[in-house]
Design a protein around this nucleic acid. Structure first.
Lengths: 328, 328
DNA sequence: CCCGAGCCTGACAACGTTGTCCAGGCTCTA
DNA sequence: TAGAGCCTGGACAACGTTGTCAGGCTCGGG
């Protein structure tokens, strides 16, 4: 900027005025400055600007895995809202590791992002307290924060799972398997709770062998599914706790001779083209992201004070696999 | 930091030393400083640090759409490499709009990212020249840069498409349709070129009605597919130019009474579970991202000078749909 | 006992920008 | 023609950090 000022023969502040489109500069002067800018290929240094102004016009998004088809649309919708507010998005994947989550969040705070959208991996976020006090707007998504009071936007995991399982029960199933992630993950625990509630509502006692918790890699999901299908008290239907589990279960069911019903949590692409189509409890990832980001910016505008918990509904999409009758 | 220094009763520089783990501080002093840091919830301001040191330890990634299942893994692998180098990733979607691409890239440059990974939307990148001269490391991915000399990492779109079409020809097809994106997009043009080459190699003249270029939204892809299936010179096989086209074509083919062969560019999830399984030319998105990011950091280490063009191979995965014989 | 070496520590400038404040010149009116 | 008021432009400090350098202290050797 100094160079530009020298070349244009004006003061520093005048260049600043031109760069920022501030009023009070003669067209003639502005032209000279603009010329110098183009000639020197000058671009304002936003780091210095941030230092002076205090706002970075950027927000951070910490999620589990950018490559997961559930988080892609979520991330995109957060980005859209950020863009509408003139902010950039810094992205980080925690890989479901609480330590890595904390490391990422603190790195983002050190960058002085204006706000944070966090899909928590850990269950204790007291480390964020100084930052919150310092004014970093924060919204949690998909799972609530641990031990701190903050905004959170999530899907109705409990209700969705309960409806999905009730759907199977309504089609005559009584022996229904559940395969989900570790119950330490909020969404997984809620979905399990929904499963149990639906079973209890129908007066069906749940056998321990029908539930598989904490398995998530394809190989172990496969073994879990096979064992509940061939065990002493074989299930006639399976409720899959998330998109990755669903995909593996589909593969296992395709190999079975008898027909087994399936309802999965999370929609998956091409689910309607499979034989049978896959019945799912769908949540709207983009809507989660949008809602969270909008709330974040409302915080930044100083319009919000009390943290709130927003729950978005899920939707049962019937496509065939959930309507298969029990084959005892 | 000033506050910390005051509270610990030491100089500014001493606090800086403690924060950065620099040697030359008595354990006793360090303890006092650490205490003050904890008490005040101090966190180093990286903006100021950047301003002083000149490096931001962050890189920018500009792609078309974070929600596209092709870019998720790519983005993730770039992030992994960045993480390994202690850098954060700033993400932006251009929505295939050249203007928005430029806007994003320049915003990232103003933030003084150390490097850029760009999946270009436009075909003229001369606007980047001042930045390149200023030392911003840059690698283009998936498509080459326009009018500037820069590193680029891409898939063998031409070869992949040629092989895919040749595969259909080898299974007896002669009337093969091609549905792809606008030829102004490099990948689309290359794949079209591969299609033409395979046809020419086999001595098959291509009818204009067999090609649909520039359609990309589901509705128009559907119409294009239907018209080449029912036209005067109906095709017996379709080559789909990208993942989104493939998905729509699958839907259309599922409605047909006769069996039509299909090979798609880009792998899609669950492709193996459909009836028939979808034969595809797969490119490795994660590998593209990783290769590009690694090259970026080698640039940053000053190890590279001459821009290079790196082409990664594609892989034909046969699953059934591409092996259907022609039904004349 | 004195001096030099070596270790800690802190003062200060600088990074590039913007907000504040003031000066100088111009116009317009009385 | 003089004074008031407006408009343009520049000097300067400050944002929070780090590199440079110098000062003061301790300790050991002469």
């Amino acid at each position: 900027m100094k160079d530009v000022a020298a070349r244009a023969g004006v003061g520093l502040k005048t260049v600043s005025r031109v760069v920022n489109g501030e009023p009070g500069v003669t067209p003639e002067t502005e032209r000279r400055v603009q010329e110098a800018i183009d000639a020197l290929g000058f671009r304002r240094n936003d780091s210095a600007r941030v230092l002076r102004k205090g706002r970075t016009a950027s927000i951070g998004l910490v999620l589990e895995d950018l490559a997961d088809p559930f988080y892609g649309p979520l991330s995109r919708s957060v980005e859209e809202v950020a863009r509408a507010h003139g902010a950039l998005l810094i992205n980080g994947s925690s890989a479901e590791d609480p330590e890595r989550e904390q490391e990422l969040v603190l790195a983002l705070c050190a960058r002085r992002v204006d706000g944070l959208v966090v899909i928590p991996a850990g269950d204790d976020h007291r480390y964020l307290e100084p930052e919150l006090k310092a004014g970093v707007a924060t919204v949690f998504v998909d799972r609530p924060a641990g031990h701190i009071d903050a905004d959170v936007v999530l899907s109705d995991n409990y209700g969705g799972a309960r409806d999905g399982v009730a759907h199977l029960i309504a089609h005559g199933h009584r022996r229904i398997g559940f395969i989900g992630d570790m119950p330490r993950i909020h969404t997984a625990a809620e979905r399990l709770r929904g499963y149990r509630a639906a079973m209890e509502d129908a007066g069906i006692p749940v056998a321990g062998s029908w539930m598989s918790l904490g398995v998530t890699d394809p190989e172990r999901v496969r073994r879990a599914a096979e064992s509940m299908l061939t065990g002493p008290d074989p299930v006639t239907a399976v409720f899959a706790g998330n998109n990755r589990v669903t995909v593996t279960v589909i593969r296992v069911l395709a190999e079975q001779s008898r027909r087994v019903a399936l309802v999965g949590f999370d929609d998956i692409e091409l689910a309607d083209l499979l034989q049978p189509g896959v019945t799912v409890v769908a949540q709207d990832a983009a809507d989660l992201g949008r809602t969270a980001a909008e709330r974040l910016f409302r915080q930044l505008d100083g319009l919000l004070v009390t943290p709130e918990r927003i729950e978005l509904p899920t939707r049962l999409i019937t496509r065939g696999s959930g309507e298969i009758p029990p084959a005892d």
